[in-house]
């Protein structure tokens, strides 16, 4: 028991510092991916509900591909593909270089792309839940297209889309564990290193699982708080 506590403690004998830094990496990767995925997902949803056939189809192709590929494969495609692509592009310009793509960046792009594909579906169904009268009301008040979108549609859209986006955030948080495979020092990778060195695999992978569980619980608290604060505007007696 004492030995276990020593292993998990902070300081030179324990793995506490490394695992704590892993938690930080996991959380920052998820937080960095979120805005990217949300913005791209929103734009995709706009494209999917536009009257322009070409735009719609382009967005559908994007969703079909990135919802169908395993996240791990997307990650590898981005990680190796970008590296090869950049090398070829640089070689075509007549330079020679060995550019290494940062695993954080690769993870951010891959997870963001997958997140946006799923988020676009959430946004799309939220768009469909907003009656056309809301747009018409906005235009009747003399608001432009952009203003109607930002001031009238978006506040309602967020409220409707929030439960779906909350689920996607939970999935994103869990998917960050995959980036440990390409060497990002997140919770799982740090736990793996600790497990290999100390030969206490069950302890460290168990700790990693519990840490993910704690992150999930914290997120659900935050999401509930956000939901409550957005719903405040809806119920007015």
């Amino acid at each position: 028991m004492e030995q276990t506590l020593t292993l998990l403690s902070f300081g030179p004998d324990g793995w506490g510092d490394q695992i704590a830094s892993g938690v930080l990496v996991t959380v920052s990767l998820a937080l960095a991916t979120l805005p990217l995925g949300l913005v791209v997902g929103f734009l995709l949803a706009l494209a999917k509900q536009s009257d322009e056939k070409a735009l719609k189809m382009a967005a559908e192709i994007y969703t079909t591909i990135f919802r169908g590929l395993p996240e791990l494969l997307t990650l590898f495609l981005v990680y190796f593909g970008l590296q090869i692509g950049i090398r070829e592009a640089v070689a075509a310009l007549g330079f020679e270089s060995q550019i290494e793509i940062n695993s954080f960046l690769a993870g951010m792009i891959a997870l963001g792309v997958v997140f946006s594909a799923f988020a676009s579906e959430v946004f799309l169904s939220a768009f469909r839940a907003i009656p056309a009268g809301q747009y018409e009301g906005g235009y009747a008040l003399g608001l432009g297209k952009v203003q109607t979108m930002i001031k009238i549609i978006l506040p309602q859209l967020i409220r409707i889309a929030l439960p779906g986006l909350g689920n996607l955030w939970m999935i994103l948080l869990k998917e960050t564990a995959l980036v440990s495979v390409i060497g990002l020092p997140d919770i799982l990778r740090q736990a793996g290193i600790a497990a290999r060195v100390s030969k206490e695999a069950f302890l460290f992978f168990g700790t990693a699982c519990l840490l993910f569980l704690v992150l999930a619980i914290l997120s659900s608290i935050v999401i509930r708080y956000i939901e409550r604060s957005v719903e405040r505007s809806e119920v007015r007696v």
Binding site: L188, A195, G206
Partner: peptide, 23 residues
């Protein structure tokens, strides 16, 4: 249900494959 839905599948796999190997 909460444990298996709240943690990454890859962490569960490691826990079973590497973790139980220790016993």
């Amino acid at each position: 249900v909460y444990f298996f839905r709240g943690t990454p599948l890859i962490a569960q796999l490691f826990l079973i494959y590497y973790g139980l190997g220790e016993f």
